[in-house]
Amino acid sequence: MVDTKDFIEAPSVEHIAGDVTRVFSPNITVRKVAPRRVHFNCDREAIHGVCKYLRDALNFEQASSVCGVDWVDHLQVVYHLSNYSNGVMVEITVDVPNDDPHIDSVALIWEGADWHERETYELFGIIFDGHPKLERLLTPQNYEFFPFRKSYKLRGQQ
């Protein structure tokens, strides 16, 4: 959080959606706006800037969750960010190509995202550039596969 106090204490959902799209215009689009919820689609080049802007200018103090999705033809990272002043939650989905699974880390913006990114790395093989310690967390260190990808079949799964 910034100390300059130039962030907006309790922005409305329309304000958040309008403000973020105006600043990061071609790289981010609003998918849906609902009461206390804003859903964005974002390019992976812009995600670090968007997250920094949300924290510093719009008072999003916490990264609730970072998770990966395997869509078979591409991977996806989904961020859920919380604002404590008005209960708004922002969801940002970022597509990541299969052959170059890199994305900028937000662990230095919100420390709460640290373990979520490590978990996404070990389960999906998405590499977070700039993460302070990108190692396997839940699975053994000697695993050489990513168990939550769709190519890893469970018993009884086609």
């Binding site: 959080m1 103090e61 916490q62 990264a63 609730s64 404590y84 209960g87 919100w110 420390e111 709460g112 995202a113």
Partner: peptide, 20 residues
């Protein structure tokens, strides 16, 4: 400030003064 940034929630966060 740290409680929010570290991702703490629930009674731990409210014990640090975040009224949420």
């Amino acid at each position: 400030k740290d409680a929010a940034n570290y991702g703490l929630t629930g009674p731990v966060m409210r014990g640090s003064g975040v009224d949420f």
